[in-house]
Simulated assay, not measured.
Amino acid sequence: MTTNVLGVLTIGQSPRTDVTPSIQSIVGSNVEIIESGGLDSLTAESLHSVEPEDFDTVYISRLRNGESMNIGKSKLLPLLQDELTQLEKRTDIVLMLCTGDFPTLQTTKPIVYPDRVLNHMVSAILPSGTLGLIIPLEEQREKLLLKWRLNELNLYTEVASPYEESDIAGAAFALKEQGADMIVLDCMGYNEQHKSAAVKSSGLPVILPRTLVARVISEYVSEE
């Protein structure tokens, strides 16, 4: 019998069949997952309305047809708030399926932001040293470096998208060569195979956000 309901809110379109099976396997079969997406209300013809302008923060996410698209944060936020407001009514806790920051979202239920979990975990494990980041888009480099500078760490980044053919292993090896002590795959789109490739090529600890936050949520919803 289901005893807890987890809302999964993606910035793209739901369902995220590339991510939620990983989460379900960790939180357990007693937890029901209900998905929603910031772009769910848009038609194929209107998706262009959320493409980023030059000034905007750029995110990338997956569409229902398996393709990916770049999204402008300022255009996404109102859509995301509408979806979150409805999703909360049907769930006990919500997971934001993005490692970006969303401080303006209003919630009435507990919500897990992966970027906060990642930041605190890295601070606890690696209070000093060198952190390597693998990120999806070159356009994200500057703002992601600024986000991670909250920690007293040397930072290096490499770009390798989780949504298309890219050299995750090569990016991880490059970060090792630059002196990284640990690597974060800084997007919820990265999967277990990406992590395995990064570990194998670098020999370093590699943090995968989707499984990390799923384990945090499993503690919250655990019956034992």
Rank of each mutant, 00 (worst) to 15 (best):
G203V: 01
N151P: 05
E45P: 14
S202T: 04
S29W: 11
S222R: 11
L145T: 08
S196R: 14
K176P: 09
S68D: 11
V94Q: 03
I183R: 06
S46R: 14
G66H: 07
L204C: 04
L144R: 13
V31Y: 09
H120L: 13
L6E: 02
Y220L: 15
A174L: 07
G66S: 06
D92Q: 12
S61A: 13
N191W: 00
R149N: 14
L155E: 08
I93C: 09
S68P: 11
M96H: 10
V206S: 02
T17I: 12
Q81V: 04
L204I: 01
V216I: 13
L212C: 06
Q81N: 00
R141P: 01
L6P: 00
T85E: 14
S41L: 12
G7M: 08
A172R: 05
K200N: 14
L47F: 10
D115F: 12
S68M: 04
G7S: 04
V221M: 11
V159K: 05
E158R: 15
L76C: 01
D115S: 15
K75D: 00
Y59D: 08
S61W: 05
T107H: 15
V184R: 10
Q106Y: 12
K147G: 12
P52L: 02
E152F: 11
F55L: 12
P78E: 04
Q106E: 15
L204N: 01
V216D: 02
S123C: 10
S128N: 13
S49M: 14
L146H: 13
H120C: 11
V117C: 08
S128H: 13
G100E: 00
A171T: 07
L47N: 05
I33H: 02
S196D: 10
H48K: 12
A214C: 07
K143F: 15
T17Q: 12
E88D: 03
D92W: 08
S222P: 03
N70Y: 08
S74G: 12
S22E: 13
P127K: 08
V112R: 00
M188A: 08
E138N: 14
E51I: 13
G72V: 00
P209S: 06
Y113Q: 14
I111V: 11
T91E: 06
L155Y: 08
A124I: 12
L175V: 07
L84C: 03
